[in-house]
């Protein structure tokens, strides 16, 4: 029982990190019809720049802020330089973002060095509580908390603000949004930057959780995010949360019981969804 609970907490924490990555991916896909294979690059840049700042200033909060700023800046550059020239062309987008992913990944090694870096959680998040017999690791709860906060803030924005409505409308029908006098390019840019910032946030939060960071983890982790986007339904924000928690828990339980097959089970899950419900669990109506 305790074990199950611990695994569940692990799964939810992993799931929340995947959610942060997948949320941006799914929004960018839903709104701009762009499958951004460079998304994992934003994740590692968030992790490295955030950790660097965290180590320099000794403040994790500053580290998180730095990661978010990095995400916004790289997101802006990516949208303007990499994505703009290839809007409306899936194949070129896939190709170009894949190339950019490689560049981002290798640049990490150039800027921060090729070796892994160890990262510990900040003092105030270190350690654990006991509730009954159950050990609750603080940092994991912290990740779950942040994930929930992000989800609810965004859910509020989507429901209650004009920009949120425009984004949702844009996911369904871009041309109509433009015909109603809204500059969709501007909306694209904002969403892309926000999505990039979420990926970077996921990266910095992931760093103390896994204890080490390395350049290749971007691609590894983003594959999980892609799986989530497909399972949840491309373009669905809510779907990305549900699917991320599902994949996170699957990952945690499999990693404990059959560690060698954890990624494979998630891949299998995606294959099953692709076969039986290709529009995902929460399809977005066009």
């Amino acid at each position: 029982m305790d074990l199950l609970f611990v695994l569940l907490i692990n799964g939810l924490a992993t799931g929340m990190l995947i959610f942060l990555l997948a949320a941006g991916l799914t929004l960018i896909f839903g709104l701009m019809d762009v499958l951004n294979f460079a998304h994992g690059g934003l994740f590692i840049w968030g992790a490295y720049s955030g950790v660097w700042m965290y180590h320099v200033t000794n403040s994790f909060t500053v580290g998180i802020a730095a990661a978010i700023v990095t995400g916004l800046v790289i997101g802006l550059v990516t949208e303007k330089v990499i994505i703009r020239p290839v809007y409306g062309n899936h194949i070129q987008q896939i190709l170009i973002t894949l190339g950019f992913m490689l560049v981002l990944q290798e640049l990490i090694k150039v800027v921060f060095g090729p070796s892994q870096k160890a990262v510990a959680p900040p003092a105030f998040l270190e350690g654990s509580f006991m509730v009954g017999d159950i050990v609750l690791i603080k940092y994991r709860l912290f990740i779950i908390l942040i994930g929930l906060v992000v989800f609810f803030v965004f859910a509020y924005i989507f429901k209650q603000t004009r920009i949120g409505l425009i984004v949702r409308a844009g996911v369904m029908n871009k041309e109509m949004v433009q015909s109603l006098g809204i500059n969709i390019k501007l909306v694209f840019m904002v969403v892309f930057m926000v999505g990039a910032a979420l990926a970077a946030l996921s990266g910095i939060l992931h760093a103390p959780y896994s204890g080490v960071i390395y350049a290749e983890m971007g691609l590894e982790f983003s594959i999980l995010a892609f799986i989530v986007v497909i399972i949840g339904g491309m373009g669905s924000f809510k779907g990305s949360l549900v699917a991320a928690l599902l994949v996170g828990c699957m990952q945690a339980f499999m990693a404990y019981y059959v560690p060698s097959l954890s990624l494979a089970t998630n891949m299998l899950l995606m294959v099953i969804v692709l076969v039986f419900r290709p529009q995902g669990l929460f399809p977005v109506k066009g």
Binding site: I82, V86, Q92, L95, I96, G99, F100, M101, L102, V103, Q105, E106, L107, V110
Partner: peptide
């Protein structure tokens, strides 16, 4: 790989 990736982006 950076060169590789860059060339590739420019080509696309």
């Amino acid at each position: 790989i950076i060169l590789y990736g860059t060339v590739y982006i420019l080509v696309v």
